[in-house]
Design a protein around this nucleic acid. Structure first.
Length: 260
DNA sequence: ATGTCAGCGGTGCGCTGA
Protein backbone atom coordinates (compact mmCIF):
# COMPACT_ATOMS: atom_id res chain seq x y z
CA UNK A 1 0.00 0.00 0.00
CA UNK A 2 1.50 3.31 -1.09
CA UNK A 3 1.04 6.34 1.19
CA UNK A 4 1.92 9.78 -0.18
CA UNK A 5 2.13 13.38 0.99
CA UNK A 6 2.23 16.47 -1.22
CA UNK A 7 1.86 20.19 -0.63
CA UNK A 8 0.04 21.03 -3.87
CA UNK A 9 -0.12 24.85 -3.41
CA UNK A 10 -3.73 25.31 -4.47
CA UNK A 11 -6.09 22.60 -5.71
CA UNK A 12 -7.73 24.79 -8.35
CA UNK A 13 -4.47 26.12 -9.78
CA UNK A 14 -2.91 22.64 -9.65
CA UNK A 15 -5.81 20.34 -10.61
CA UNK A 16 -4.39 18.99 -13.90
CA UNK A 17 -0.91 18.54 -12.37
CA UNK A 18 -2.27 16.70 -9.34
CA UNK A 19 -4.48 14.42 -11.45
CA UNK A 20 -1.56 13.62 -13.76
CA UNK A 21 0.58 12.62 -10.81
CA UNK A 22 -2.19 10.52 -9.23
CA UNK A 23 -2.59 8.62 -12.53
CA UNK A 24 1.16 8.02 -12.65
CA UNK A 25 1.86 7.14 -9.01
CA UNK A 26 -1.53 5.70 -8.04
CA UNK A 27 -1.05 5.96 -4.27
CA UNK A 28 -3.60 4.14 -2.11
CA UNK A 29 -3.67 7.04 0.32
CA UNK A 30 -2.72 10.65 -0.46
CA UNK A 31 -2.43 13.55 1.97
CA UNK A 32 -2.51 16.99 0.35
CA UNK A 33 -1.68 20.32 1.97
CA UNK A 34 -2.36 23.92 1.00
CA UNK A 35 -5.51 23.06 -0.91
CA UNK A 36 -6.43 26.77 -0.54
CA UNK A 37 -10.11 25.96 -0.86
CA UNK A 38 -13.20 25.78 1.28
CA UNK A 39 -14.69 22.28 1.47
CA UNK A 40 -17.67 23.12 -0.74
CA UNK A 41 -15.43 24.38 -3.56
CA UNK A 42 -12.99 21.44 -3.54
CA UNK A 43 -13.30 19.66 -6.92
CA UNK A 44 -14.04 16.19 -5.58
CA UNK A 45 -15.48 14.65 -8.77
CA UNK A 46 -12.27 14.25 -10.81
CA UNK A 47 -10.63 12.52 -7.84
CA UNK A 48 -13.62 10.26 -7.29
CA UNK A 49 -13.43 9.31 -10.98
CA UNK A 50 -9.91 8.00 -10.25
CA UNK A 51 -11.34 5.81 -7.48
CA UNK A 52 -10.65 7.97 -4.43
CA UNK A 53 -12.74 8.70 -1.39
CA UNK A 54 -12.11 12.38 -0.60
CA UNK A 55 -12.21 14.09 2.80
CA UNK A 56 -11.23 17.73 3.16
CA UNK A 57 -10.66 20.29 5.87
CA UNK A 58 -10.36 23.62 4.15
CA UNK A 59 -10.75 27.35 4.71
CA UNK A 60 -10.99 30.41 2.53
CA UNK A 61 -7.83 31.48 0.73
CA UNK A 62 -5.03 29.73 2.58
CA UNK A 63 -4.02 26.50 4.27
CA UNK A 64 -6.36 23.51 4.06
CA UNK A 65 -5.67 19.78 3.95
CA UNK A 66 -7.25 16.83 2.14
CA UNK A 67 -7.07 13.09 2.69
CA UNK A 68 -7.77 10.76 -0.23
CA UNK A 69 -8.01 6.99 -0.11
CA UNK A 70 -8.88 4.19 -2.49
CA UNK A 71 -10.24 2.36 0.56
CA UNK A 72 -13.29 3.78 2.37
CA UNK A 73 -12.71 5.74 5.54
CA UNK A 74 -13.92 4.09 8.74
CA UNK A 75 -13.33 7.27 10.74
CA UNK A 76 -12.42 10.89 9.94
CA UNK A 77 -11.47 13.63 12.39
CA UNK A 78 -10.80 17.26 11.56
CA UNK A 79 -8.74 19.82 13.54
CA UNK A 80 -5.76 19.26 15.80
CA UNK A 81 -6.92 18.92 19.42
CA UNK A 82 -5.70 21.29 22.11
CA UNK A 83 -6.96 24.76 21.09
CA UNK A 84 -10.62 25.41 20.34
CA UNK A 85 -9.74 29.00 19.31
CA UNK A 86 -7.45 27.90 16.46
CA UNK A 87 -9.31 28.61 13.22
CA UNK A 88 -6.58 27.52 10.82
CA UNK A 89 -7.35 24.34 8.81
CA UNK A 90 -4.17 22.32 9.15
CA UNK A 91 -5.03 18.77 10.26
CA UNK A 92 -7.23 15.89 9.13
CA UNK A 93 -7.03 12.32 10.35
CA UNK A 94 -8.57 9.20 8.85
CA UNK A 95 -8.66 5.45 9.44
CA UNK A 96 -8.94 2.80 6.74
CA UNK A 97 -8.98 -1.00 7.03
CA UNK A 98 -5.72 -2.74 6.15
CA UNK A 99 -5.44 -6.45 5.39
CA UNK A 100 -4.78 -7.38 9.01
CA UNK A 101 -5.13 -4.16 11.03
CA UNK A 102 -6.57 -0.65 10.91
CA UNK A 103 -4.32 2.02 9.38
CA UNK A 104 -4.50 5.56 10.77
CA UNK A 105 -3.29 8.60 8.82
CA UNK A 106 -2.70 12.05 10.30
CA UNK A 107 -2.37 14.59 7.49
CA UNK A 108 -0.83 17.89 8.61
CA UNK A 109 0.21 21.28 7.34
CA UNK A 110 2.47 22.63 10.07
CA UNK A 111 2.64 26.44 10.34
CA UNK A 112 5.55 28.07 8.49
CA UNK A 113 6.33 30.40 11.41
CA UNK A 114 8.04 33.23 9.55
CA UNK A 115 8.87 35.95 10.30
CA UNK A 116 10.30 34.69 13.59
CA UNK A 117 9.87 38.05 15.35
CA UNK A 118 6.12 38.03 14.58
CA UNK A 119 3.31 36.19 16.38
CA UNK A 120 3.61 33.50 13.70
CA UNK A 121 6.64 31.85 15.29
CA UNK A 122 5.09 31.30 18.75
CA UNK A 123 1.97 30.04 16.95
CA UNK A 124 4.12 27.47 15.12
CA UNK A 125 5.79 26.33 18.37
CA UNK A 126 2.46 26.08 20.20
CA UNK A 127 1.01 24.12 17.28
CA UNK A 128 3.98 21.72 17.47
CA UNK A 129 3.41 21.29 21.22
CA UNK A 130 -0.22 20.35 20.47
CA UNK A 131 0.95 17.96 17.76
CA UNK A 132 3.33 16.25 20.21
CA UNK A 133 0.49 15.79 22.71
CA UNK A 134 -1.88 14.42 20.06
CA UNK A 135 0.84 12.09 18.73
CA UNK A 136 1.56 10.83 22.25
CA UNK A 137 -2.14 10.02 22.77
CA UNK A 138 -2.44 8.38 19.36
CA UNK A 139 0.69 6.23 19.72
CA UNK A 140 -0.86 4.81 22.91
CA UNK A 141 -3.44 3.12 20.65
CA UNK A 142 -0.61 0.90 19.35
CA UNK A 143 -1.97 1.11 15.80
CA UNK A 144 -0.21 1.39 12.46
CA UNK A 145 -0.21 5.20 12.34
CA UNK A 146 1.40 7.48 9.76
CA UNK A 147 1.75 11.16 10.66
CA UNK A 148 2.61 12.83 7.38
CA UNK A 149 2.64 16.17 5.68
CA UNK A 150 4.41 19.47 5.22
CA UNK A 151 6.20 19.85 8.57
CA UNK A 152 7.90 23.14 7.63
CA UNK A 153 10.91 21.84 9.57
CA UNK A 154 14.41 21.14 8.20
CA UNK A 155 15.49 18.43 10.66
CA UNK A 156 19.27 18.49 10.04
CA UNK A 157 21.93 20.44 8.12
CA UNK A 158 22.03 17.63 5.56
CA UNK A 159 18.41 18.40 4.74
CA UNK A 160 19.26 21.73 3.09
CA UNK A 161 21.49 22.49 0.11
CA UNK A 162 22.56 25.76 1.79
CA UNK A 163 21.98 25.30 5.56
CA UNK A 164 23.73 28.60 6.29
CA UNK A 165 20.88 30.42 4.52
CA UNK A 166 18.32 29.00 6.98
CA UNK A 167 19.89 29.58 10.42
CA UNK A 168 17.58 32.51 11.24
CA UNK A 169 14.52 30.96 9.54
CA UNK A 170 11.58 29.45 11.44
CA UNK A 171 12.04 26.21 9.45
CA UNK A 172 15.51 25.64 10.94
CA UNK A 173 15.50 27.54 14.26
CA UNK A 174 16.60 25.42 17.25
CA UNK A 175 13.13 25.74 18.82
CA UNK A 176 11.47 24.16 15.76
CA UNK A 177 14.06 21.43 15.37
CA UNK A 178 13.93 20.59 19.09
CA UNK A 179 10.18 20.06 18.90
CA UNK A 180 10.59 17.88 15.83
CA UNK A 181 13.10 15.77 17.79
CA UNK A 182 10.71 15.54 20.75
CA UNK A 183 8.05 14.28 18.36
CA UNK A 184 10.44 11.74 16.84
CA UNK A 185 11.55 10.60 20.29
CA UNK A 186 8.00 9.51 21.12
CA UNK A 187 8.87 6.49 19.00
CA UNK A 188 8.36 7.44 15.36
CA UNK A 189 10.48 6.30 12.45
CA UNK A 190 11.03 8.86 9.73
CA UNK A 191 10.36 6.86 6.56
CA UNK A 192 12.67 8.67 4.14
CA UNK A 193 15.66 8.78 6.52
CA UNK A 194 15.13 5.14 7.56
CA UNK A 195 15.68 4.10 3.96
CA UNK A 196 18.00 6.78 2.54
CA UNK A 197 20.89 8.31 4.49
CA UNK A 198 22.26 10.42 1.64
CA UNK A 199 22.44 14.19 1.68
CA UNK A 200 21.05 16.17 -1.22
CA UNK A 201 17.52 14.75 -1.10
CA UNK A 202 14.96 17.54 -1.03
CA UNK A 203 11.19 17.96 -1.24
CA UNK A 204 10.88 21.75 -1.74
CA UNK A 205 12.53 24.25 -4.06
CA UNK A 206 11.47 27.90 -3.83
CA UNK A 207 9.90 29.48 -6.90
CA UNK A 208 12.33 32.40 -6.47
CA UNK A 209 15.93 32.98 -7.44
CA UNK A 210 16.27 29.90 -9.64
CA UNK A 211 16.23 27.55 -6.64
CA UNK A 212 15.07 24.58 -8.74
CA UNK A 213 17.62 25.16 -11.49
CA UNK A 214 20.41 25.37 -8.88
CA UNK A 215 19.03 22.39 -6.90
CA UNK A 216 18.87 24.74 -3.92
CA UNK A 217 16.30 22.66 -2.04
CA UNK A 218 15.26 21.68 1.46
CA UNK A 219 13.65 18.54 2.90
CA UNK A 220 10.59 19.56 4.91
CA UNK A 221 7.89 17.03 3.91
CA UNK A 222 8.03 13.96 6.13
CA UNK A 223 6.28 10.66 6.84
CA UNK A 224 6.52 9.61 10.49
CA UNK A 225 5.67 5.98 11.21
CA UNK A 226 4.49 4.47 14.49
CA UNK A 227 6.37 1.29 15.47
CA UNK A 228 3.48 -0.78 14.09
CA UNK A 229 3.74 1.06 10.74
CA UNK A 230 7.55 1.08 10.69
CA UNK A 231 7.64 -2.70 10.97
CA UNK A 232 5.76 -3.03 7.65
CA UNK A 233 7.72 -0.31 5.77
CA UNK A 234 9.16 -1.69 2.53
CA UNK A 235 10.34 1.33 0.50
CA UNK A 236 10.09 5.09 0.02
CA UNK A 237 10.52 7.66 -2.71
CA UNK A 238 10.50 11.32 -3.61
CA UNK A 239 8.91 12.13 -6.97
CA UNK A 240 11.41 14.88 -7.77
CA UNK A 241 10.67 14.90 -11.51
CA UNK A 242 7.26 16.45 -10.79
CA UNK A 243 9.02 19.73 -9.86
CA UNK A 244 10.08 20.03 -13.52
CA UNK A 245 6.54 19.75 -14.90
CA UNK A 246 4.50 22.66 -16.27
CA UNK A 247 2.85 24.70 -13.51
CA UNK A 248 4.56 22.82 -10.69
CA UNK A 249 3.95 23.15 -6.98
CA UNK A 250 7.06 24.29 -5.09
CA UNK A 251 6.90 20.93 -3.22
CA UNK A 252 7.08 17.41 -4.69
CA UNK A 253 5.27 14.23 -3.57
CA UNK A 254 6.96 11.97 -1.00
CA UNK A 255 5.75 8.43 -0.40
CA UNK A 256 6.23 5.20 1.53
CA UNK A 257 5.14 1.67 0.71
CA UNK A 258 3.72 -0.41 3.55
CA UNK A 259 2.98 -4.14 3.33
CA UNK A 260 -0.59 -3.70 4.52
C1' DA B 1 19.60 40.12 -8.31
C1' DT B 2 14.34 38.44 -2.91
C1' DG B 3 14.84 36.68 -9.60
C1' DT B 4 7.73 33.55 -7.80
C1' DC B 5 3.21 32.12 -7.28
C1' DA B 6 -1.90 31.71 -5.66
C1' DG B 7 -5.97 33.74 -3.86
C1' DC B 8 -8.49 37.72 -2.49
C1' DG B 9 -11.44 41.68 -3.20
C1' DG B 10 -14.05 43.05 -6.64
C1' DT B 11 -12.90 43.87 -12.54
C1' DG B 12 -7.27 46.89 -10.91
C1' DC B 13 -3.49 45.31 -9.20
C1' DG B 14 -1.76 45.87 -4.49
C1' DC B 15 -1.85 43.02 -0.50
C1' DT B 16 -1.09 38.66 2.07
C1' DG B 17 1.00 34.31 2.89
C1' DA B 18 4.39 31.22 1.65
Amino acid sequence: MRIASWNINGVKARLETVLAWLKEASPDVACFQEIKSIDDKFPKAPFEELGYHVETHGQKGFNGVALLSKHPFEEVNRRLPGDEEDEQARYIEGVVAGKTQPLRFGCLYLPNGNPVESEKFPYKLKWMDRLIEHARDTLAREEAFVLLGDYNVIPQKDDAARPQDWVEDALFKPESRARFRTLMNLGFTEAIRATNKSSGIYTFWDYQAGAWQKDNGIRIDHLLLSPEAASILTSTGIDKHVRGWEKPSDHVPVWADLSA
